[in-house]
Design a binder for these strands. Structure first.
Lengths: 329, 329
DNA sequence: CTGTTAGCGCTTTCAG
DNA sequence: CTGAAAGCGCTAACAG
């Protein structure tokens, strides 16, 4: 095991100079720095993470907790999100790992907190009611949620601004002349803010409640023209169902987008793109959002106990037309 | 931050006693242990991972590197494997995390090694030619591969014993009276060891080369009776294609398993089970295998530089008949 | 710009 | 069975 003492000897400088040459936390002459780096290279020196963490106060490491990491074949973890976090966090000289959670019961969080090797945790895919938030908060570990959920205290988060996104979609359809809009959703009512927006735009919304599966969407397509003759625009919150709908449409004598224009508001850009050219989206850059989340995490760690103030960040997307929204005349 | 010094004071014992009471590495009277644990509870004490790692030699932590972690929608990471490793490693008092790798280029490994916060690494989903192995080996970080690949040095690994598995399947079919066997594979020839086994059992093998998709399998079913009239047993190395085949069989006037018995050798038990009752398997317990891999990892870390001897472990499965292999008469 | 030094919190001898 | 004390390798004052 080579330590920074060995490097110091090799380079003929003091130990702290080695540290500073490596961290850049104080000015070092180029000559010395070069000698140090050469010595590091020659000795194959690797910094000891544990020692740095111990001396430095808090470990320079963030942990991602992704719920349902391995649930069912196509787990919904998104590579872009993880990549973004990794990069955002790395930019600050931190590392990031994924904490493997099978069942997201409390013992997983508990173990993480008890082990205490992580400077902060990023919670992803939070559910409506997520006990982990409460635990994290009580343990006073810095944490950021990528997404949001309902709890009775303030916390750091980064999330899409769904309300604005929805409104953009609605407004776009209005501009194109559509007034009767179908809302593809699964097992839930039309969001209040959408209703409000529709009212003020004098548009009519109709709930299209289908299971979020290819078949669910396909089934909707079959009877669509008969059961919803007036609908000419659709805002969809579902990915699979929408793709199923679009795929089946032609066979059902339904022309997209000539007869119906669809805007997806809850799918990733890449998903819509690869899935079907007929789905426009209010796109946003998941990678960039996650990266910003990583940065926020590091800030929260470095702020430490000093500032208690919580931060939050909302991301709005831009409308992306793939030539698949038709004017209603 | 409460430290073990606080606990010592609270419990009225020395610092080392607290450590030993917690680790159990030396006998402590019940009375003292109780006092210590009570103090820990009361103060909400959490051990400092970094300090423990620093003082204890190597960090009690293993890192999983899963290549293609986020490749394409249905990433092939298997929950059972990760769960098994986590549990196997945890049993030894170690923790485990997943190192997020997007593109498995060298920089990912390099970063991991340079950061040096992990006592050992488990490589999963290794590819035919995997540079990471070489890097790990050169860096002298203890590592275990879950799977195998080709390199010019010895290393620790845990893997299925495919040859034995294949032979079990073949022998089973022989016992049932089948002599003409189809081998479902994608884009590759029949393995040599299978050919040899078949020869010694006086069985005939025929390659059924199809893409590993539901459609691929279905297509095979369509012409099956005409193009392969003599085949009465099948050994399949593919999952999706086999399921497609079985699903389509009835419609094609092919009765499974009355006319053809199928044994899957490359699918997880759960997969075959949920997919179709008509597929028998040579089953193996992925979870247990991975757990054993986790244990091996910890052993390797603890062995440290002492013993250089490599270990390896091969797992064989058992034949599982779901009442779906028919005797050929 | 560079060197000295006091810890960070824990594990582990070495002494009872 | 329990205590005292010496580090693990690094960071961050404090002193030039």
């Amino acid at each position: 095991m080579t330590t920074r003492a060995d490097i110091a000897r090799l380079a003929g400088v003091s130990e702290s100079t080695v540290s500073y040459a490596l961290s850049g936390k104080r000015p070092i002459s180029d000559a010395v720095k070069k000698r140090v780096l050469a010595a590091v290279e020659q000795a194959g020196y690797k910094s000891n993470y544990a020692a740095a963490a111990l001396a430095g106060g808090s470990p320079r490491m963030v942990t991602m907790m992704i719920s349902n990491l391995f649930a069912t074949p196509a787990s919904r973890i998104n590579g872009a999100l993880v990549d973004g976090i990794v990069d955002g966090v790395r930019a600050a000289g931190f590392h990031s790992v994924i904490w493997p959670v099978s069942n997201d019961d409390e013992s997983d969080v508990d173990l993480l907190l008890r082990s205490n090797f992580s400077g902060g945790v990023i919670l992803m895919n939070v559910k409506e009611k997520d006990e982990r938030l409460r635990l994290l908060n009580r343990a006073k570990v810095p944490f950021v949620v990528l997404g949001r959920t309902k709890v009775d205290f303030e916390y750091n988060f980064v999330d899409r601004d769904f309300q604005s996104v929805d409104k953009i979609a609605l407004t776009k359809l209005k501009d194109l002349g559509h007034e009767n809009i179908g809302i593809i959703l699964s097992d839930s009512p039309i969001p209040a803010h959408l209703k409000r927006a529709a009212a003020s735009l004098k548009m009519k919304l109709e709930l299209l409640d289908v299971p979020n599966t290819l078949d669910g969407g396909a089934l909707l397509a079959v009877h669509f023209k008969k059961s919803h003759p007036t609908i000419s625009g659709i805002i969809s919150f579902l990915d699979a169902a929408t793709i199923g709908f679009v795929n089946a449409a032609a066979d059902c004598g339904l022309s997209i987008p000539r007869e119906v224009s669809i805007i997806g508001v809850n799918m990733l850009e890449s998903q819509a793109e690869s899935a079907h050219q007929a789905i426009s989206t209010v796109a946003f850059d998941a990678y960039e959002m996650a990266k910003s989340c990583g940065k926020m995490m590091v800030e929260a760690i470095e702020a430490g106990k000093n500032s208690k103030k919580k931060r939050s960040e909302l991301w709005v997307g831009d409308f992306v037309d793939r030539g698949s929204t038709a004017v209603k005349n």
